[in-house]
């Protein structure tokens, strides 16, 4: 029997016709845990050209902590159908916000890539993170004024098409702003962003 990834309660979800006849992935968390996450209404979106799906409430804080710092990679699956629903029909090229290679090695996985992978979303890495410094330890002003966080990957050609940046959490919007500027300067037609969580 499957158990909820978050609270270990046995999962007895009904095999509905919907589940049988669509490619909807099986849920990995129970209804009770799922209800603790809070969806963002359209009017609550804080950043221009950024769509975020969930509020950063207590349940989300715990989730993100276990996923990233607890290195519980499978938790990427918790939101896979949300992410798939939102991104699968996008015509833009999907570009994950990258981690610094050293940081990635330390964490053993890149959480944004993992979120996309389990949602079966194809993505292209165009960016490289230049600094290992943690954004969370900086003040908002420091983050806005700091120099470009990213550089373009050598083997990546930016075309005059639409790009959709993806990050796990947007807290000040600076990271996404940096990446957007870089892609626009390199010739992109339009750059919008998607984040699972709005901090």
């Amino acid at each position: 029997m499957m158990h909820c990834y978050l609270c270990s309660a046995p999962l007895r979800h009904q095999l509905t016709w919907k589940l049988l006849f669509t490619s909807m992935p099986e849920p990995v968390v129970c209804e009770k845990c799922l209800r603790k996450f809070e969806r963002i209404q359209d009017s609550e979106q804080k950043y221009e050209d950024v769509i975020a799906l969930y509020h950063y409430n207590e349940a989300m804080h715990d989730y993100l902590h276990q996923f990233k710092f607890g290195q519980d990679v499978v938790l990427a699956k918790v939101f896979r159908s949300d992410i798939a629903t939102y991104l699968k029909n996008s015509s833009a090229t999907i570009v994950p916000i990258p981690m610094h290679p050293l940081k990635k090695k330390e964490r053993t996985f890149a959480q944004v890539d993992e979120l996309l992978r389990v949602a079966s979303i194809t993505y292209t890495h165009c960016l490289e993170k230049m600094t290992t410094q943690n954004q969370a330890t900086k003040s908002k002003l420091e983050r806005e004024q700091s120099e470009q966080f990213f550089s373009l990957k050598e083997d990546c050609q930016i075309e005059h098409i639409d790009y959709l940046l993806v990050d796990d959490i947007v807290t000040t919007g600076t990271t996404l702003k940096h990446a957007t500027t870089l892609l626009m300067d390199a010739g992109a037609r339009k750059v919008t962003s998607f984040a699972l969580i709005q901090g």
Binding site: D72, V73, V74, K105, R107, T108, F109, A110, E114
Partner: peptide, 8 residues
Amino acid sequence: FARFHCAK
């Protein structure tokens, strides 16, 4: 047990 591709 869970499997994943490990960057380490």
